[in-house]
């Protein structure tokens, strides 16, 4: 049933958010620490397991992929909710700091990605499975 997929999604999100809140309290931070990320990992793990056991029905998958497909429209609605006026009214300092942080972030994407690639190239994952 389609609702199984939606319910699985909802349960993963709620469990993730609760873990994120608990993590936040544990390290004394006023924010949800990685709740959505934990929910995503949970969902990937559960789906992986269900697929291997062939327990993931077609309608269940539809319930999941519908909300994945609704992602962009939801992001557009989110954009329409942003405090754009607030961003501009933050003044030149706020604008300069925000813009500079984005440029710095963009510049570091290829740098950090390269570090990762270098490592994975020198280390062949297939060697793990080779008998000694």
């Amino acid at each position: 049933m389609v609702i199984y997929g939606v319910a699985l999604l909802a349960t993963c999100m709620l469990v993730g958010l609760i873990i994120g809140e608990v993590l936040g309290v544990a390290i004394n931070v006023e924010a949800n620490v990685g709740g959505v990320g934990i929910a995503m990992l949970l969902l990937v793990l559960i789906i992986d397991t269900l697929r291997k056991r062939e327990r993931l029905g077609e309608p269940t998958q539809d319930g999941l992929s519908f909300w994945g497909a609704m992602y962009i429209p939801i992001v557009v609605a989110m954009a329409a909710n942003q405090n754009v006026v607030g961003a501009i009214e933050g003044g030149p300092l706020a604008i300069a700091a925000g813009v500079a942080a984005v440029i710095a972030g963009f510049l570091f994407v290829p740098v950090i990605s390269k570090i990762g690639k270098g490592r994975s190239n020198s280390y062949d994952h297939r060697e793990d499975g080779r008998p000694l």
């Binding site: 999604l9 909802a10 993963c12 999100m13 993730g16 958010l17 709740g35 959505v36 929910a39 995503m40 990992l41 969902l43 990937v44 789906i47 998958q61 999941l64 992929s65 519908f66 909300w67 994945g68 609704m70 992602y71 429209p73 939801i74 992001v75 557009v76 609605a77 989110m78 954009a79 329409a80 909710n81």
Partner: peptide, 22 residues
Amino acid sequence: GISILGGAMMRDFAIVATAFGA
């Protein structure tokens, strides 16, 4: 109504749903 569709709850729900393709 846009604040419901574009609020944090629906945003996070849809983000988690994208993990289906990860």
